[in-house]
C-alpha cells in the first residue's frame, strides 16, 4: 500500500466530486436547508428575544438524517460502478496499483468531499447563528458536525459496498436510493409497527434501533447535546440507566462500527469482484 497512490486517487476523486451533479445538488441542498433552519432560529431570536438553539439543533439533526445518508450512499454507489461501466476502472487497475489503493483512495477522496460539503453547510449556518443567537454552544455545534461526518462516512461505506458489486451506475444509484429509503423510512416504520404489535421491551427496541446508523447518529447527537435521552421516552431512559456515562462512548463505538464494517466489507467485495 502506497500512501502517495492512495492520495493520487483521493485528489482525483475530490476533483471529480466538484463536477459531480449529485454532489453539487446535495451540497447545495444541505447548505440551503441548514441556512434556512438557522434563519428560522435567528428570526425567532429577533421576534421573541430568545435563543432557540436547542430546537435548532433538533431540526439540524433531522435535516442531517435526511440529506447526509443520501449524499454518502449515492456518491459511494456511483464511484466504482460508474468507472466500471465506462471501463476506466479496468484501465486504472492495469496500472501499477493495488485494488485496495484504488478503493481506499476513492473512499478518502469522497470522505473529504463529504467533509467539505458538511463543513460548508455547518460553517455557513454557524455564522448565521453566531451572528444573532446568543448562548449558542460551540462544542455542541461542532459535536453535531462531527457526528454528521461520522454518519456521512457510514453511508459512504454502504454506498461503496453497493458500488463494489454493481456493474452499472444506474443499478448502483437505484440500489443506493433503495438503501436510503430503507434506512430513513422503511426500517424505522417496520420497527415502529413491530413494537406496536408485539410490545417489544424497551431494551430490545433500543438494541434493534442501533441496527440503523441513522438512529445511532440521532441518539448520539441527543445524548451528546442534552446529556440524557429523556426526550426519547422509556427506551431512552432505559439506555441511559443501563449504560450511564458509558452510553455516549458506546454509541460512538457503534457509529464507528458502522463506519468500519461497510468499509471493510466494501474493500473485500471489491477485491473479490475486481474490475469487471
Amino acid at each position: 500500500m502506497d500512501a502517495r497512490t492512495v492520495l493520487a486517487f483521493a485528489t482525483k476523486e475530490l476533483r471529480d466530486a466538484r463536477r459531480n451533479r449529485w454532489f453539487l445538488l446535495h451540497t447545495g441542498a444541505l447548505a440551503a436547508l441548514s441556512l434556512g433552519i438557522s434563519a428560522l432560529a435567528v428570526s425567532s431570536q429577533g421576534a421573541f428575544g430568545l435563543a432557540g438553539f436547542g430546537r435548532t439543533t433538533a431540526s439540524l439533526v433531522n435535516l442531517v438524517m435526511l440529506v447526509v445518508p443520501l449524499m454518502g450512499l449515492t456518491l459511494g454507489a456511483l464511484s466504482l460502478a460508474q468507472e466500471r461501466e465506462r471501463g476506466t476502472l479496468l484501465y486504472v487497475l492495469a496500472q501499477p496499483v493495488t485494488p485496495s489503493e484504488v478503493f481506499l483512495g476513492k473512499y478518502l477522496g469522497l470522505a473529504l468531499a463529504l467533509l467539505a460539503s458538511l463543513a460548508l453547510g455547518f460553517g455557513a449556518s454557524g455564522l448565521l447563528i453566531a451572528w444573532r443567537v446568543s448562548g449558542a454552544q460551540v462544542q455542541g455545534y461542532l459535536g453535531l458536525a462531527g457526528l454528521s461526518f461520522g454518519l456521512a462516512l457510514a453511508s459512504l461505506g454502504l454506498g461503496l459496498v453497493i458500488s463494489a458489486v454493481a456493474r452499472r451506475a444506474s443499478t448502483a444509484v437505484g440500489l443506493a436510493i433503495f438503501a436510503w429509503l430503507a434506512l430513513v423510512l422503511l426500517g424505522d416504520l417496520g420497527l415502529m409497527g413491530t413494537a406496536m404489535v408485539l410490545r417489544i421491551d424497551v431494551g430490545a427496541l433500543f438494541g434493534l434501533t442501533l441496527l440503523n446508523p441513522l438512529q445511532v447518529f440521532k441518539i448520539s447527537a441527543i445524548a451528546g447535546s442534552q446529556g440524557t435521552l429523556e426526550v426519547l421516552g422509556p427506551a431512552g431512559v432505559f439506555a441511559f440507566r443501563t449504560f450511564g456515562a458509558g452510553l455516549l462512548p458506546l454509541l460512538l463505538a457503534v457509529l464507528l462500527a458502522w463506519v468500519v464494517a461497510p468499509l471493510a466489507a466494501g474493500l473485500g467485495l471489491f477485491r473479490w469482484r475486481g474490475a469487471l
Binding site: V161, A204, G207, L211, T242, G244, A257, A261, A265
Partner: peptide, 21 residues
C-alpha cells in the same frame, strides 16, 4: 455483502441488546 456486514455487526449488537448494568 449484506449478509457479511450483518454477521460482522451481530456480536456487537448482541452486546448492546442485553442490559449490562
Amino acid at each position: 455483502p449484506l449478509g457479511r456486514a450483518a454477521a460482522l455487526l451481530a456480536p456487537l449488537l448482541a452486546l448492546i441488546g442485553c442490559p449490562g448494568a
